[in-house]
């Protein structure tokens, strides 16, 4: 079994997720992604069990790949900005 991810790895994943989320061209998707990533890390900040941490980090990596793909799709079909931006 793989060793549990270190604190530095988790923080780096968090930063990558946030950075990628900011790239969503759509205002609503962008704000949602940023908010959701933040809240998910906040809720799980005290998780100590290495297995759970490992599972969560894996989920985070999959989310990162998903966000990257969807940012590309979104930027191919951009629309006008909304009235609040």
């Amino acid at each position: 079994m793989m060793a549990a991810p270190s604190r530095a790895q988790v923080i780096s994943l968090y930063k990558m997720l946030l950075r990628e989320s900011y790239n969503f061209p759509s205002y609503n998707y962008r704000t949602y992604a940023v908010r959701r990533v933040r809240d998910a890390f906040r809720v799980n900040k005290d998780v100590a069990d290495p297995n759970t941490v490992e599972r969560l980090v894996l989920e985070g990596r999959q989310s990162l790949a998903l966000i990257q793909r969807q940012v590309v799709v979104g930027s191919m079909f951009q629309a006008q900005k909304t009235a609040v931006e």
Binding site: F24, N28, Y29, A33, L66, I67, R69, Q70, V73, G74, A79, Q80, K81, T82, A83, V84, E85
Partner: peptide
């Protein structure tokens, strides 16, 4: 139709329909 640089209205009609979640689109593609 909206013109090119016109601002889009905010969407506040989630009972009519909702935007597709990017995670859903990712599963469908």
């Amino acid at each position: 139709d909206l013109v090119q640089d016109e601002l889009r209205p905010l969407y506040m009609d989630f009972q009519a329909t909702t935007p597709m979640d990017p995670r859903v689109l990712d599963a469908m593609l």
